[in-house]
Amino acid sequence: MSTAPSAPLPKTRLRRPYLLDQLLRHKGGAFGLAIMALFILLALFGRMVAPYDPNANDYLNLLSAPSAQHWFGTDELGRDTLSRVIDGSRIAVAVAFLSVSIAMAIGVLIGVISGYFGGMVDSVLNRSQDVLFAFPTLLLAIILVAVLGPGLFNASLAIAIVYSPRFARIARASALSIKTSEYLDAARLAGVNTPTILVRHILPNVMPPVIVLAALSMSTAQLAYASLSFLGLGVSPPQADWGSMLSKGRDFITIAPWLVIWPTVALVMLMLAFNVLGDAIRDVLDPSHSSSKSTDTLT
């Protein structure tokens, strides 16, 4: 999990098949990837692995401590904590991917339009983003959820709106620099029409920094959702969800600490995985980290 730019990386080329390869060779990358894979598998197939139905009540075992029967203990309704932690990974993973994807889509669209066309469009988009930046992020997310209503998709959308200006800024900056590049002049001279220029030339060259930002944003989005859920603005109960489990478990913290410990462990592990993986992806994709030959062509 090295955040410091350690030894110079071997010469990297930006081709998809190599990305995975490079990540696996990166010390943090392999670790992050492994934990991520574990959580994704849990999210997809967790219901099959989980010992109990996450919403089934065991009235004979209310708030029972971890035992052979319930490894992680049970909550005040006798629901199995292990099964609920596993089921909660579905929400955590889904929100992280969903919100970052939406933020990326909104941000890249706005950023590319604003950077490429400039002028009035650019000014209007910039000013409206300045207004969004006038809100603390969590506050904006809270109020957006209040407007949109609760639920997995709405919470993801709210988080996406909050984080989209970051994507827009980075996409706009790249689009601006690509706009004046000679290969774009060449394409215009060749008579290539504007939509094709946007798709063929601008978009592919805007994406690398955007993907790095997306990778780094996964943990932030996850955290934002966990906070929303903790504050009671996530998915509706009885769906198991780490944030709301923590919020509920707080009431029983003195008598049943396992109710807060296990969701916390899961949450922190996933966030750590996202963080480490994000750093690894940046190390691999960021041109300033790769060798000099590719630096001038990638920027």
């Binding site: 943990s219 966990a226 903790f230 944030g243 923590l246 919020s247 916390t264 966030m271």
Partner: peptide
């Protein structure tokens, strides 16, 4: 630091509550 950044504020709060209790 790395640990602190990986942990949301409410988790710190809960941990403190645990220790505090």
């Amino acid at each position: 630091l790395l640990f602190t950044f990986s942990v949301p504020i409410f988790v710190i709060g809960i941990l403190l509550l645990l220790v505090g209790s």
